[in-house]
Design a protein around this nucleic acid. Structure first.
Lengths: 117, 117
DNA sequence: AGTAAATTACGCACTTTTTTGTAACCAGAT
DNA sequence: ATCTGGTTACAAAAAAGTGCGTAATTTACT
């Protein structure tokens, strides 16, 4: 998943959305503005390092907006940009496809017997 | 991205679609049936091993159908299952979002100044 | 009054885990 | 020997986790 020039738009999107966290963060951010700690509580298994890294990646992709406020204790808020909001229904569609297709019959055709012609 | 029980459907989909190859293979397979060697030529940078690994993953997910025919040299064909076909427009939508959103204005709000209240 | 501890959102260095690539080997008919 | 579609073992690379340090203010306690 290294940085490669992508001829195909699919490569570009997947560079950003691939992995366990990006879509999951989108999922939580679509409810509205969240703080760093909120997102950690939403998903307790993400490490603080990964959360910063992934948020930064989404920010760089123009999907998430980061707003830091002066003062202590620190306060930083994250929310979706218009671009990010457009992405949400597309991700949702994938989720729906996943649950819908879960009941599909297994493709039983393995090692089909047929003339090699 | 290891095997975790996914409460959220998003996690499930991304487990299969994450990475550089899955969506790309979908992209090539949507044109119709392809053989192993075809797919390697379509994407010369994928290693022999990764192609088998990724194809097997997609097959296990019920997205790709694998048909092996008797005889030598070997002949194995890959195509999309109905489930896989349903996925294609969703992936395409992501690609379109990517190119459409590429021209969006950068989110310039960084380190916003505001009362910490 | 003085001090210790908690808070919040990280950055950095280091270790572990996971993923991907390489190369060699296999089958068996032409 | 070559062709095709694989498998396996090993090595390299990338991704993810761990733990420590930082900052200024509040709270908790003595």
């Amino acid at each position: 998943m290294k940085n490669t020039v992508s001829r195909c738009p699919i490569e570009g999107v997947m560079q950003v959305l691939s992995g366990r966290w990006p879509t999951l963060l989108l999922y939580y951010l679509k409810d509205g503005t969240k703080r760093f700690g909120d997102l950690r509580r939403d998903n307790p298994t993400i490490s603080h390092r990964m959360l910063t890294v992934e948020l930064r990646k989404l920010e760089d992709a123009g999907i998430v907006r980061r707003s830091a406020f002066e003062g202590y204790p620190l306060r930083v808020e994250y929310d979706l940009t218009p671009k990010g909001l457009e992405l949400v229904p597309l991700i949702d569609a994938l989720g729906q496809w996943w649950v819908r297709a879960a009941g599909y019959p297994r493709n039983g055709i393995r090692r089909a017997e047929a003339p090699a012609g």
